[in-house]
Amino acid sequence: MTTKPNIKSWRDLNIGGVIESGTSEHFKTGGWRSKVPIWQEKNCIQCMNCWAFCPDDAIKVKDGKRAEYDYEFCKGCGICAEECPKTTQAINAIKKEDPNIEIDSWDGAENPKFREKAAILMVSIKEAKEKFGIK
């Protein structure tokens, strides 16, 4: 049995396209990346420059210390590698094969599940959570 995707109409949209904050968390955009930054923990002095300068939220912190990249969101801009002190060289932006991650692609407009998720998120995070069990 197939259920019809819940595609929102123009009547359902919030005024002015206003959406609840935080929806970008639900779209994995790491697929835009062309360079992959690699962090070498042994060289890291924990200055946290990379964390401060990351324009996304792709550098994770655990117990007050720098942790691994969140490659689902890192777009490979290379700013972290640029800001990493040259004396330590803990980050190198290297073009290489991407870590294997799940990516939501805008090309996925053909993917009904993606279309439905995008549409529902435009109106309500709560509804999207109920439908897709996303956190």
Partner: peptide, 23 residues
Amino acid sequence: NPITVGSLVLTDYYMEHKRAQHE
């Protein structure tokens, strides 16, 4: 009540926003 104003709307919903403005 934090909100996002002026978010990106691509091929999937730009047209619906214009339709709402038309109305």
